[in-house]
Design a protein around this nucleic acid. Structure first.
Length: 573
RNA sequence: GUCCUGGUAGCUCAGCUGGAUAGAGCAACGCCCUUCUAAGGCGUCGGUCAAGCGUUCGAAUCGCUUCCGGGACACCA
């Protein structure tokens, strides 16, 4: 358990003795001249129990034991305090090599994390990066906090793009057996590359846009797949497999690993069962089959969820319901978390309501959607290429990669240089992407993000390179904190105390910005310390050992935090 | 039109379950390398927290109104 949590428990015990039944938070002080930590509970007590906050504060501090020093009350009832040096030292020495020592585990449960969301047969674009980065990091965070997770990429592999690509394929190979109605043999392997698919989609899409007949054809093929047309499904599955290879590669570059590589097609078998369960709640509206999802206290009219289109085909909602059903049947999760663009929040609200209302999902299973903001260009509009097209994710990685490449030390060459540039590029992207609060739109500025100074991936990795280099030069592997007389050392230790709290908060609010910010704060404090102290040449042994122990401690903690963010380190740069 | 979101330093963003003097990075300016990677560190400058009203001992934070931006509102996902 973290020291902060432990202390908060100790404090609530004191409060209980005093007759107050109230939660108490130990906060890092924002008035450092009064102490390292502050407690504001006297005000809440004053309000609830109608007492004078200053008197309450006095009563509380009278119960403190020797773990605290410099206890004082300021203003109307702010309690300030610091930890006893030895108490702090012992705590950290115990946890030097054990990250778990600093964190507070959550209740064990199983959570399916639905992130990624790539569309089959279409290139990943900038927007997919957020789902991947946030989803992967949250998944890892859940694991660190003691939960089981199953990550599913949930490919968009059923829908209009299938119709588009097959109609395009028909134009390229009109005589192919896939289009012979009375063909019953094995279907041949198609000879398309992912590049071909990448070109076919925009072509078909453009034509369909300008030509209603072509669009009807696309709809018809899509509906045919939905009805189970074997030829189309066989063809489409091959296309999905081809594009999956490329998609997988990009996700690998982003350090995303999915336990399940499934998609909408996989939910297909469960749809009849889902419809059966939902049947009593479905009714016809404009030819389509829908399910009402209104609540009494809705502030606005909540449109019904469409389940079957008027042409008899399923729609994305149907597939999502099928997926939910299948996941619950197979994995019995406690919760399912979705990471998509914020714009889909209304849609997910509809799906979730329909799931509970129709009894498809037990109320005990929590379905939760976490939306994220848009990645914009400097003009405040969605990030585009120079000529205004959609920016592909791989292109974006290249842009960052080129900038980074220039900044690596000249003496690093060849494959090593290339590898370092790759790691740095991904770190740059991820750090920048996870720095803003999850739900806010942010402006993507490649120059700024790959810059060497500032709150950036390169700054973080650079500091780590220095730390590692220093630890390599040190003679021993294990040091202990001995002397607590350096205020910079203490500043870092006090900052490190917060790690458990930061992780808990990140989990509660499902955002990574506290974590990225916190990493910067620690490393920035460390850089200051590094600058003002010559660690390896420190003459006083006790001091030198302390400094090296601190360095190891910082490294261990940062290493674990970066691992949560799925950011790799480099040895030099 | 209805609903959701946002408006904080020149720029990009934190802070929002109410707490002490609103923070960081960048940019600008000025310092610190015979020293463990100066790809670093230190300092200065910079704010009627969009506006108004209200609740409160206390409001960037909560409520209401207005203005401005982004988004959603069934046969795309």
């Amino acid at each position: 358990m973290s020291l902060i949590k432990e202390t908060e428990k100790y404090l609530s015990l004191i409060l209980k003795e005093l007759g107050y039944n109230i939660e108490c938070e130990l906060l890092a002080s924002n008035r450092k001249e009064f102490g390292d930590f502050q407690i504001n509970v006297a005000f809440s007590i004053a309000k609830e129990y109608h007492e004078n906050p200053k008197v309450v504060a006095e009563k509380i501090i009278n119960h403190f034991d020797e773990r605290f020093v410099n206890v004082n009350i300021q203003g109307a009832g702010f309690i300030n305090l610091s930890f006893n040096d030895n108490y702090l030292k012992d705590y950290f020495n115990k946890g030097l090599h054990d990250f778990n020592y600093f964190i507070d585990l959550e209740k064990e449960k199983t959570i399916i994390v639905d992130y990624g969301g790539a569309n089959a047969a279409k290139a990943l674009h900038v927007g997919h990066m957020r789902s991947a980065n946030i989803g992967e990091a949250i998944k890892r965070l859940l694991n660190v906090l003691g939960m089981k997770t199953i990550g599913d990429v949930h490919l968009g592999d059923l829908g209009r793009q299938a119709g588009m690509l097959i109609s395009e394929y028909r134009r390229m190979y009109p005589d192919s057996v896939f289009f012979k109605t009375n063909y019953h043999g094995e279907y041949p392997k198609i000879k398309l590359t992912s590049d071909d698919l990448g070109k076919m989609y925009p072509k078909a899409s453009l034509e369909a846009k300008n030509n209603p007949e072509r669009m009807d054809e696309v709809r018809e093929i899509t509906a045919e797949i939905d009805r189970g047309n074997k030829a189309y499904i066989a063809l489409w599955k091959q296309m999905v497999a081809i594009s999956s290879e490329v998609i997988k590669k990009v996700y690998q570059e982003l350090n995303c690993s999915f336990e399940l590589w499934e998609g909408e097609l996989d939910a297909f078998n469960d749809i009849p069962k889902v419809l059966e369960i939902m049947k009593p709640y479905l009714y016809e509206s404009d030819g389509a089959l829908v399910c009402d999802v209104e609540n009494e206290n809705d502030k606005r009219p909540m449109p019904p969820l469409m389940v079957i289109k008027k042409d008899g085909a399923t729609i994305y909602g149907t597939r999502d319901l099928g997926t939910i059903y299948s996941r619950i049947e197979r994995f019995h999760p406690d919760e399912i978390w979705y990471f998509t663009d914020e714009r889909q929040s209304l849609y997910f609200e509809q799906v979730f309501r329909a799931s509970y209302k129709t009894g498809l999902v037990d109320k005990k299973v929590k379905l939760r959607h976490f939306g994220f903001g848009t990645i914009n260009g400097k003009d405040g509009k969605p990030y585009k290429t120079r000529d205004g097209g959609v920016m592909e994710l791989s292109e974006l990685i290249h842009i960052i990669h080129d900038t980074i490449m220039k900044n690596i030390k000249e003496e690093i060459t060849g494959k090593e240089r290339e590898d370092i540039a790759n790691t740095l590029s991904i770190a740059t992207l991820k750090y920048a992407d996870l720095l803003p609060y999850r739900r806010t739109d942010y402006i993507f500025d490649p120059e700024k993000f790959s810059s060497l100074d500032g709150k950036t991936g390169p700054y973080v990795l650079y500091t780590i390179v220095r730390i590692k280099s220093l630890l390599k030069r040190a003679d021993k592997k294990d040091y202990l904190l001995e002397k607590m007389d350096n205020s910079e050392v203490k500043d870092i230790l006090i900052k490190l105390l917060e790690v458990g709290k930061i992780l808990t908060k990140s989990y509660q609010e499902v955002t990574l910005n506290y974590l990225t910010e916190y990493i910067y704060e620690i490393l920035s404090l460390y850089n200051k310390f590094y600058n003002n102290n010559n660690i390896l040449n420190e003459a006083d042994d006790a001091k030198r050992n302390t400094y090296l122990a601190l360095t190891q401690l910082v490294y261990n903690i940062i290493h674990h935090l970066l691992n949560i963010l799925a950011i790799d380190e480099v040895e030099k740069m």
